[in-house]
Amino acid sequence: MTGFLEYVPGNSLLHRMNPVAKLFCALLISVACFCTSNLIFLACVLIFDFALAAHCKMTRQAMGLAKAVTIFSLILAVIQLLTNSTGMVLVPLPWGYIGTGGVIGAVTIILRLVAAAVPLFLVMYVTKMTDLANSVVKVLHVPYKYAFTFTSTVHFIPVFMNDMAGIMEAQTARGVQFDQGSIVKKIRLMVPLCIPLLVSSVRKTNSAAIAAEVRGFNLRTRESGYKQYPFATLDVVSLVICVCILVVAILLGVLL
């Protein structure tokens, strides 16, 4: 079992692609989702996302992510429902009505966010963070310290999640009831826990920074890494397909 954003080993097409190409493909698909509100297009992208996830044997992770994004996008969907009073009247409200336009808008928001988020997260799961950092340094000439900052941030997410779980467990053992009471009460109980989390985060990042520095972090340049990241046919074909998806999205957005 793998943790959040933890590399999943494999030999799928996505695993074999150049990290930079993967990143660009994911970005192109995500941008495409925001270029059109065509529900059929968004549904097709979503199916494509899940087909990719199934190919990489990561359907479970993709489902988990889709669920989390859906919950988050529900807030936006509700706002859309209550404020977009267009189309046929479904439910009258004191300030307007919930109409078919609002419902379509809400569904569009959910589909768009899920379809845009899944490929970005898939890239994180199928790419080693070191490869991602090294490739953006080699191919895109991004300064190593920025690439390292990004990969360290991603690397620390599961670490901090684990820390938070440990801290909550320690407080539960002291009698704090996280599983009872209203949401406000739960938030009030959670606030003090930010202190140990913050302290442990600062300590960890400080230790990591010192450990990197004493091993010559500042001497690292683009030429330091021996591994090369050339673009293969697969990468070029994938990029062309993703550009086509973006063009279709733009055309649908302009024409419809």
Partner: peptide, 9 residues
Amino acid sequence: FQNPDRQIC
């Protein structure tokens, strides 16, 4: 707990 920093808040 083994790590007091998880407890102190």
